[in-house]
Computed example of a mutant assay.
Amino acid sequence: MKLFYAPASPFVRKVMVFIKELGLEDKVELVKISTTVIDQNADLAASNPVTKIPTLVMDNGKGLFDSRVITAYLDSLVSSKSLYPAEGEARWDVLCMEALADGLMDAAVNNRYERGMRPADKQWDAWSDGQVKKVHGALTALDGMAASFGDRIDAGIVGAACSCGYLDFRYPDIGWRESYPALGAWYAKFSKRTSMQETQPPS
Rank of each mutant, 00 (worst) to 15 (best):
M1S: 01
L3S: 02
Y5V: 07
A6R: 10
A8K: 11
S9D: 04
F11W: 04
F11I: 06
R13C: 01
K14R: 13
V15P: 01
V15K: 04
M16N: 05
M16I: 02
V17A: 05
V17T: 05
F18I: 10
F18V: 08
K20T: 13
G23R: 01
L24K: 09
E25T: 11
D26L: 08
K27W: 07
V28A: 06
E29V: 09
L30Y: 12
L30H: 09
L30C: 07
K32R: 15
S34V: 12
T35V: 06
T35Q: 00
V37D: 14
V37K: 13
D39Q: 10
A42K: 15
D43P: 03
L44F: 06
A45V: 11
A46R: 13
P49I: 11
I53D: 09
K62G: 14
G63M: 00
F65L: 10
A72L: 02
A72M: 08
L74M: 06
L74Y: 01
S76L: 11
V78F: 04
S79C: 13
S82A: 08
S82V: 07
Y84N: 11
P85I: 10
A86H: 14
G88N: 07
A90G: 13
A90H: 12
A90I: 09
R91I: 07
W92Q: 09
W92I: 12
D93N: 15
V94H: 00
V94N: 00
V94W: 04
C96M: 15
M97R: 14
A99C: 12
L100Y: 06
L100T: 11
A101W: 09
A101Y: 02
D106G: 07
D106Y: 05
D106Q: 04
A108Q: 05
V109S: 01
N110A: 15
N111P: 07
E114R: 04
E114V: 05
G116Y: 03
G116V: 06
P119G: 00
P119V: 10
A120K: 14
D121M: 12
D121Y: 11
K122W: 07
W124T: 15
D125R: 13
D125N: 14
W127K: 05
W127C: 07
W127G: 08
W127I: 14
D129Q: 14
D129L: 14
G130N: 05
G130H: 02
G130Y: 00
G130M: 03
Q131L: 13
V132K: 03
H136F: 10
H136D: 13
H136P: 12
G137C: 06
G144F: 03
A146D: 12
S148C: 12
F149R: 00
F149K: 01
D151Y: 11
V158Y: 01
V158K: 08
G159A: 00
G159K: 07
A160T: 15
C164D: 04
C164M: 11
Y166D: 03
Y166L: 11
F169M: 06
D173N: 14
W176A: 07
R177P: 04
E178W: 11
E178F: 12
S179T: 11
Y180K: 09
Y180W: 10
Y180I: 01
A182D: 14
L183M: 05
L183T: 05
L183I: 11
A185H: 05
Y187N: 01
K189M: 13
F190C: 02
R193V: 08
S195P: 05
M196V: 02
Q197I: 06
E198Q: 14
T199Q: 01
T199F: 02
Q200W: 11
